[in-house]
């Protein structure tokens, strides 16, 4: 996937999520995450992505004041 492809799928995700609506956005992203996990098919890679996605946000935020 090159930069243009990334641009295209990023925009597709944004417009689809807009259409799904804010109330269901969490569910939409959760479903997307599940599908991406099974498609990736690599337990270690998925675990690393989960950690990377959580890093720096929420209660575990290392940069929190």
């Amino acid at each position: 996937m090159n930069d243009t492809d990334l641009d295209t799928v990023y925009t597709r995700l944004c417009t689809t999520m807009t259409a799904v609506g804010e109330a269901e956005a969490n569910l939409f992203l959760a479903r997307f995450a599940l599908l991406a996990m099974t498609r990736l098919g690599d337990r270690e890679a998925v675990e690393a992505l989960i950690d990377a996605a959580a890093e720096g946000i929420g209660a575990g935020c290392s940069q929190a004041p």
Partner: peptide, 14 residues
């Protein structure tokens, strides 16, 4: 939209 805003926040943070 909220979706573009949310995704942008994700991009910038990552």
């Amino acid at each position: 939209s909220f979706a573009f805003r949310l995704m942008r926040e994700a991009v910038l943070g990552l």
